[in-house]
Computed example of a mutant assay.
Amino acid sequence: MRIPLAYLSIILIWATTPLAIKWSGEGPGFLFGVAGRMSIGIVCVITLLLMLRQRLAWHGKALLTYLAVALQIYGAMLSVYWAAQFIPSGWISVIFGLSPLITALLSALWLKERSLSPGKLLSYGLGVGGLAIMFGSALQFGPEAVLGIAGVLVAAGLQSASAVWVQRIHAQLPALSQVAGGLLLAVPAYWLTWWLADGQWPVSLPLASLASIIYLGVIATTIGFVLYYYVLAHLAATRVALITLLSPVLALMLGHTVNHEPLTMKIVSGTALILAALVLHEFFDRMTNYFVRKTTARTRRRLRPLD
């Protein structure tokens, strides 16, 4: 029961995170928003570690795991925050929907998993088609929107690489320790980036921005990341990435309803193709194997009287 509940919680958190990311950068700037979020997150995570009396491991595999987690916490999140300036929040979750496809490809190359079957190759084609439609829709909003899509695509790739890398290292660390170690590396990098690229303390901090930063720091970073790596420790990386199957639809609806973001036919079509790619990626091989087994069983029953 714990794993399904954690899985559902991640879906809801990931559906609300894109809008919170967009709001957190409106006013103080995206770099301050993400640095503030991760700073709150590390305080919460370290507090949890102390309360649970967990100690961080410092052996070689643990350090590599922290580095792999930091790739997602710093690299992927920084790309998303930068991209959120240029595109509607719902698009972030839609484009992140491609992460199962990217994860499967990386798993095939890095973990030698069998994730390049004909059904999965077809799903990759649908995913690329959906992404092409999203790029076409972005052209209507200007060249900056295209850059925003590219930024989220980079983030999806970095998150997928991080997930596969963590599984390849296989250090078997508690989820909370993985997040804490990753944050210890990522937070100084964030403030250094903010200082070099901006360095100006925000003149104003709107209530929506402040509330979003706190929500992202306490809920999305502390609870969301811990649940993510908890589920990742118990399920295959490709299955964990399927969390993005439901969150894009919820994020689009939330952005359209709450933030009055555009919802054109191209956006709907691109989203539908990407979601279809995810469904095909997950269920095509299963259905094919099911029908093969059924057909084989029927054939054996027919031939049995002839033995």
Rank of each mutant, 00 (worst) to 15 (best):
T288Q: 15
V43I: 14
P100G: 10
S160T: 00
P305C: 13
S24Y: 08
L12F: 12
L5R: 07
T295Y: 09
W191E: 06
T257N: 09
Q178M: 15
S9I: 02
A70V: 05
T299E: 14
V94W: 11
T65Y: 00
V94H: 11
A57R: 07
A233K: 11
V179Q: 07
L101Q: 01
L147Y: 08
H59N: 05
P118Q: 00
I3D: 11
Q54L: 15
L196I: 14
L101Y: 03
A150E: 01
V231W: 04
V69P: 02
V203H: 12
L254H: 12
S177R: 06
F283V: 12
L273W: 08
L106D: 01
R53Q: 15
R301G: 07
L31R: 04
A84K: 06
M265T: 14
A163Y: 07
C44A: 08
L158M: 13
V45R: 05
L235T: 03
T238V: 12
P28S: 09
T271I: 07
I11C: 10
G60Q: 05
S89L: 13
A189C: 13
L19A: 11
A197K: 08
S93N: 13
L56M: 10
Y124T: 01
A6Y: 10
G119D: 06
E26M: 14
L109H: 04
H59W: 13
G224T: 05
V80D: 02
S79M: 14
L101R: 02
A220V: 07
A104Y: 01
A189D: 09
I10E: 01
Y290S: 06
R53A: 13
T47F: 15
T103M: 02
G75L: 09
L48N: 08
S107C: 09
Y290K: 09
A161V: 03
W201C: 04
L158W: 06
F30N: 03
H59E: 02
Q178R: 09
L306G: 02
L19K: 00
G129Y: 11
A237W: 02
Q178T: 04
V268E: 06
L52K: 02
G199T: 11
L126I: 04
L131K: 04
A150R: 03
P262D: 09
L303I: 10
G97C: 13
K22H: 15
S39E: 07
L67H: 00
F30I: 03
L303V: 00
Q140A: 12
L250T: 08
R298K: 08
A156Y: 02
A171L: 08
P206Q: 13
V152W: 05
A163H: 05
A20G: 04
K112W: 09
I10K: 00
D198H: 08
Y215I: 06
F291K: 02
A20V: 05
I46K: 03
A155C: 10
L48H: 13
L153H: 02
L183W: 00
